[in-house]
């Protein structure tokens, strides 16, 4: 069951992104920025939490989920450490993903070179 809800939720979020690409001619960079900020705002408003409850990875894997993790981390650290938590919580919660993306990309960059689009 969790697979089906993940598939549907993730599919819908990506399909919304496709509407933005086709209708507004936004570049993928802008789409990514829009989605992470949307995730932050929706989580802040309490709207995204129920989507995560139902959709699982379908809601956390898209970049809106990255925004969700940032806010969850900030709130957790504010609860533990007060004001300082506003600055420490977000990156703490997402550190694994960011560090992995940077390091794996460095390795890929060292070893591989680009090929023409086919």
């Amino acid at each position: 069951m969790s697979y089906l809800t993940a598939f549907i939720t993730g599919g819908i979020i990506c399909a919304i992104g496709q509407i933005l690409i086709d209708k507004t001619k936004l570049t993928s960079a802008r789409i990514l920025v829009a989605f992470i900020v949307a995730g932050v705002i929706l989580t802040g408003l309490g709207i995204y939490e129920p989507i995560v409850k139902w959709g699982g990875a379908g809601a956390t894997v898209p970049l809106t989920g990255f925004g969700y993790s940032l806010v969850k981390g900030v709130i957790k650290d504010v609860n533990s450490y007060g004001f300082l938590g506003i600055f420490t919580g977000g990156l703490k919660a997402t550190a694994g993903g960011i560090a992995a993306a940077v390091f794996f990309s460095l390795l890929a960059g060292l070893i591989f070179r680009p090929k023409i689009k086919t």
Partner: peptide, 20 residues
């Protein structure tokens, strides 16, 4: 050259973007 033009005017070759 397709590849030199892409990197100057558009995106890295391996970026998974869609061409309209």
């Amino acid at each position: 050259h397709f590849c030199s033009a892409e990197r100057q005017f558009r995106f890295p070759l391996e970026l998974g973007n869609q061409r309209p």
